[in-house]
Design a protein around this nucleic acid. Structure first.
Length: 218
DNA sequence: TTATAGATTGCCT
DNA sequence: GGCAATCTATAAT
């Protein structure tokens, strides 16, 4: 099934407020599903719906980068809510998080998969799929996976780490367009070894853009 | 100073 | 289904 949004109107999108992110990452995860990630650049607009996220619980979570306490790498996580935390992983990929909880507390949400809505040509270009016929398979290759969606949105540590995603002038932000997921599922988080059993992955049930090889969207 | 694991992806068999 | 690529933060020496 596909979540095409009849209500999608790029001109009306404005950033979610800081208070949205000033709470438990698990709550932020649920609320973020169905929202829209927006990138503005050079008069162009990239937009994609959030369909899969994971909660990281700060210093109490062995799988979280904040587990070891504040460092130069993870300091954004301990700052105010609503800021982008970008890290580089496996020598190849950037991943996007948004900080949650009040300043001093380090919860966060990792973006794992999006459903492309606007700027698909541009995404194809940066993902190395320029000119490919737009099929379900090609769309999935754009933003289904944390490394993929970061590349599609041109997200890098240099450009975006620490950016305030609630600033009305930000070129990267999250917005609501009225879409509501029908059903949300929780599963174990992907790709971690510590605290791997906790059900902190949230996804829109049945959405075809959820990451991974088909079938586990149950 | 050196070693190693890692919130992944894509190519190979 | 298996595994190399490629870099960095942090741990170990």
């Amino acid at each position: 099934m596909t979540d095409f949004s009849a209500s999608f109107d790029p001109g009306r999108l404005k950033p979610l407020p800081r208070e949205f992110f000033n709470r438990d990452p698990r709550r932020v995860c649920r609320e973020l599903l169905g929202k829209v990630l927006v990138r503005r650049e050079q008069g162009k607009l990239l937009a994609a719906r959030v369909v899969e996220v994971e909660a990281y619980m700060g210093t109490g979570d062995p799988a979280a980068h904040a587990f070891i306490g504040p460092t130069s790498r993870n300091q954004v996580l301990f700052g105010p809510p609503g800021h982008a935390y970008i890290y580089f992983i496996y020598g190849n990929h950037y991943c996007l998080n948004v900080s949650c909880m009040p300043e001093g507390k380090a919860g966060s949400v990792l973006f794992r998969a999006l459903e492309p809505l606007a700027g698909i040509e541009k995404m194809q270009k940066v993902r190395g799929l320029e000119g490919a016929a737009v099929s379900a398979r090609v769309l999935r290759l754009l933003t289904s996976g944390p490394g993929r969606l970061a590349e599609a949105f041109g997200i890098t540590r240099l450009r975006d780490n620490g950016k305030d995603l609630t600033d009305p002038n930000s070129d990267l932000f999250l917005a609501a367009d009225g879409f509501r997921p029908r059903r949300v599922l929780t599963t174990a988080r992907v790709g971690i070894t510590k605290a791997a059993e906790k059900p902190l992955r949230y996804l829109i049930a049945g959405n075809e853009f959820v990451s991974g090889k088909r079938s586990q969207t149950a």
